[in-house]
């Protein structure tokens, strides 16, 4: 094994011996000094996860979160030097983490927080201009074939739990005690200007936004939404998507 491979393995394994060949000027046990590196690595990566998943942390408390994150860091250190990408696998890990089973919605709240970070750093794009919208609406018979480009920051999270309400309650919106976590919710995550918003979607709203994001023509995405909920209000949901700037281009298949 190479020197750095031994050093690296010992960084993440608290039971591994201190790597051979390390010395101190006073002949003291180098393990105590090596522990500084071990601590820097694990603590800084736990801190990075705490930054990305603040509501997840609040839901279980700092001590539990840091212990859970420490287990994750040791089995799944970052695979990229871009720390902003770290933690993509953390929600799936939480879902399988036995001590967190008593908080069944924890993994989905973590998924929502991960999507927020992704949205924060996603590419910039201008919303559709009012003129372009007016042109599209001037030909209502062609609306079903209209293709919509969603903002690069946009994503939809469908959950068996009240993810959007739980998240909002931790931002000071609404009373956490009044949130029933076992009500299924879908959330739209999108950056509006410089701020990432989490918007609870009504039944069918998830199908519309996800369908558009997948590149379906407006008619097909609307049909999916109406199939999911017969009182789905297509006009209101489209207006909401336009208002927050979630849509960035409109095109008919014949247009370039």
């Amino acid at each position: 094994m190479s020197d750095q491979r031994l050093f690296a393995a010992a960084l993440l394994d608290p039971d591994a011996p201190c790597p051979a060949g390390l010395i101190a000027w006073n002949g003291s046990d180098p393990a105590r000094r090596f522990a500084v590196y071990r601590n820097n690595v694990v603590v800084s990566l736990i801190d990075a996860l705490a930054d990305t998943f603040p509501v997840t942390l609040e839901l279980v408390g700092e001590e539990f979160f840091r212990a859970m994150a420490g287990v994750f860091v040791r089995i799944a250190p970052p695979g990229s030097v871009l720390l902003v990408e770290y933690g993509a696998g953390f929600p799936d890990f939480i879902e399988r983490f036995e001590p967190a089973r008593s908080v069944p919605y924890l993994a989905d709240v973590a998924r929502l927080e991960r999507l927020r970070v992704r949205a924060f750093h996603a590419a910039d794009a201008d919303p559709i201009s009012p003129e372009r919208i007016a042109r599209a609406l001037a030909n209502p018979e062609r609306l079903p074939t209209l293709r919509v480009t969603c903002h690069p920051s946009l994503s939809v999270l469908r959950s068996d739990y009240a993810v959007a309400s739980l998240w909002a309650a931790h931002q000071g919106h609404g009373d956490l005690a009044q949130v029933d976590p076992f009500v299924p919710e879908s959330a739209l995550v999108v950056r509006v200007g410089l701020d990432v918003q989490v918007i609870a979607l009504p039944s069918g709203g998830d199908a519309l936004a996800a369908g558009l994001a997948d590149g379906l023509p407006l008619g097909q995405a609307a049909a999916l939404a109406l199939a999911a909920s017969e009182d789905f209000d297509l006009t209101a949901q489209l207006a909401m998507l336009l208002r927050v700037g979630a849509l960035t281009a409109l095109a008919q298949p014949t247009e370039t």
């Binding site: 750095q4 993440l12 060949g21 590196y37 690595v41 990566l45 990075a48 695979g79 030097v81 720390l83």
Partner: peptide, 17 residues
Amino acid sequence: AWSTHGGAFFNDLLPLP
């Protein structure tokens, strides 16, 4: 310094002989 090995990033500046 070094901070990566075997595809893992350690987020620390590690020492060299």
